[in-house]
């Protein structure tokens, strides 16, 4: 049974394989969604926290965690959702921020806690950019346009 040789640290790396279905370049570990893992023999409990209250990806993420852990041989998988302390982009890894930019999404930037003009364009690095809307294609992003390369892009909001 594979699960017998697995410790908590290894489990976190297995869960790296699970991506956010709405930002598929980020793993749920990069995002800081997995808060803790508790192992008892062939049982495992995973504590996850939603990014936004209404994040529709949470059910899918929970299902994928179940599948991943069942594949590793765990007999019982419990997913517990916690909301306190509330999720924050401070929990996003540096690796996650790098991957976001490479994917074309500007990473959370402390200088823009309130979205405003000037967030660095992830495509051409210009800071001559314009906030189009504080809301975008998912709850976690704002919509921008770059005045230099003219491309629209998303900014992952500080939260």
């Amino acid at each position: 049974m594979m699960y017998k040789t697995i410790d908590k640290k290894m489990l976190f790396s297995y869960l790296e394989e699970i991506k956010d279905p709405e930002v598929p370049v980020l793993s749920i570990i990069d995002l800081g969604i997995v808060r803790d893992i508790v192992l008892h023999d062939d049982e495992v409990e995973v504590f996850i926290t939603p990014t936004y209250s209404g994040c529709p990806a949470m059910d899918m993420i929970a299902t994928e965690i179940r599948v991943e852990l069942a594949t590793l041989g765990f007999k019982k998988v419990i997913i517990t959702q916690t909301i306190s302390p509330p999720w924050t982009t401070d929990w996003m890894s540096d690796e996650g921020k790098r991957k976001l930019k490479a994917y074309g999404i500007a990473a959370p930037d402390k200088r823009f806690v309130i979205p405003a003009d000037g967030v660095e364009c992830p495509l051409c690095n210009s800071t001559d950019t314009k906030l189009m809307s504080a809301f975008s294609s998912t709850a976690c992003k704002s919509l921008y346009q770059c005045n230099d390369c003219k491309e629209p892009f998303d900014y992952f909001k500080c939260h």
């Binding site: 209250s53 504080a134 809301f135 709850a139």
Partner: peptide
């Protein structure tokens, strides 16, 4: 953009409501 904004707000409220 505003269609997206109002539906984002709607989704936030639905999430709060579920909690």
């Amino acid at each position: 953009e505003q269609d997206i904004a109002i539906t984002n707000i709607s989704l936030d409220l639905l999430g709060q409501s579920r909690n």
